[in-house]
Design a binder for these strands. Structure first.
Lengths: 64, 64
DNA sequence: CTCCGATGTAAAGCGTACTTTCCATAGGTA
DNA sequence: TACCTATGGAAAGTACGCTTTACATCGGAG
């Protein structure tokens, strides 16, 4: 799965730390997701998308 | 998280077994998700929503 | 140069997502 | 009766999501 988290985060001028706090997870979790080291849980993915004003499918894409 | 999987599945006239096969998971996984015993992974949630012609947020709802 | 904020990464630990195998029950049909 | 499908669920194993702690690098501000 690829995602646009880094792009969306920078678009809001936030650090990984700040985004993590806004979403209730650690900065390492944000980092790992941005790097594609693993996918977020479903509830976190929904919170993230909602935070950026998007639906899950607009933020997370199945890699072809 | 609550979800509409059972309702959507029955709307298509499918058994848990048949849905599991269509999505590439076991029938026990479908059962557990319908019962709310746990949430699906993000890729499975996206596959499920897509299978039913919906976005993730239309199938899985945050609790409150 | 020194200090700091931001980022990358690793280890250990915990809970969960998912599997296979197995057992059990209910309803329908022959 | 016996059989079959659909469902619910337990047990054990594997892999992943997420945490805390810790260390390291880089760039900018002073």
């Amino acid at each position: 799965m690829r995602n646009d988290v880094r792009h969306l985060r920078l678009g809001k001028g936030l650090s990984q730390q700040a985004l993590g706090e806004a979403l209730g997870v650690s900065r390492q979790t944000i980092n790992a997701i941005e790097q594609g080291r693993y996918d977020p849980s479903l509830p976190l993915a929904i919170r993230m998308a909602r935070y950026f004003g998007k639906v899950v499918e607009e933020v997370f894409h199945v890699d072809p």
